[in-house]
Design a protein around this nucleic acid. Sequence first.
DNA 1: AAGACACTCAACCGCACCTGG
DNA 2: TCCAGGTGCGGTTGAGTGTCT
Length: 244
Amino acid sequence: MVRTPCCEKMGLKKGPWTREEDRILINYINSYGHENWRALPRLAGLLRCGKSCRLRWTNYLKPDIKRGNFSREEEQIIIELHAALGNRWSAIAARLPGRTDNEIKNVWHTHLKKRVNEPEKLRGVSDFQQKTSRLKEEDVESLPSSSEINHGGHGQTSYSQLNSPQHSYSEISSIVTIDKCDFQAVKKIQEADEDFWSEIFSSETTCDFTTMERGYNSSMHDDMQFWFSVLTRGEELSEFRATK
DNA sequence: AAGACACTCAACCGCACCTGG
DNA sequence: TCCAGGTGCGGTTGAGTGTCT
């Protein structure tokens, strides 16, 4: 059976999505839903094929997507489910709320496969873990006690979060990277992203980043909370070191 | 400092399955 | 039952970025 191509290649755009395209897609789906992916780009005024729109929505734009690093628990679940189900990424994703099959597939290929297939390398990993935990201990030792820093209501933003054994290796590496780099630069990048996401959130929720930064917004995603805590604590750390 | 190499992840491709006429 | 269109899924690619030499 000869199938028609999923989209006419004529004039249809490929490659990375622009913010404007994302905005158009989000606005359209928020208003009209996505009953017919094939017709959607034409109706929304996008020069994309329906497949591309569906992928962009399900893997990136859908509001319930949990963004950010996988926790140790999530990684363990993926390893166990992969052992049971094989490469059935959508079935695995169905048991990890907020995670997409594409994301899980990527994590498997980049991190978990190596861990499962090359146990001899675990020694190296545990060496790395020792180094990073040492590094964090040093940082904690050089830090002011909780009584020296007035959190002003940060609540969960404590070093215990950074030291939590729940964090995956990928998270640990992120923490180490953050610790080494210039927090102001990182924050600028974060702010640039916030501009985009806050525009999106503002169209459908009452999410307020000023409130979120205070740690009061209960609807904040865990990873966002994590990044805010890293950034906030990083600045506190830099300030504290500067005053020492 | 710069080129080579490795890694990550968003996005694409093509096949299989589902559904309605 | 068959066929065609729509959608979902898994494999793969390639641009961007980081790390090493």
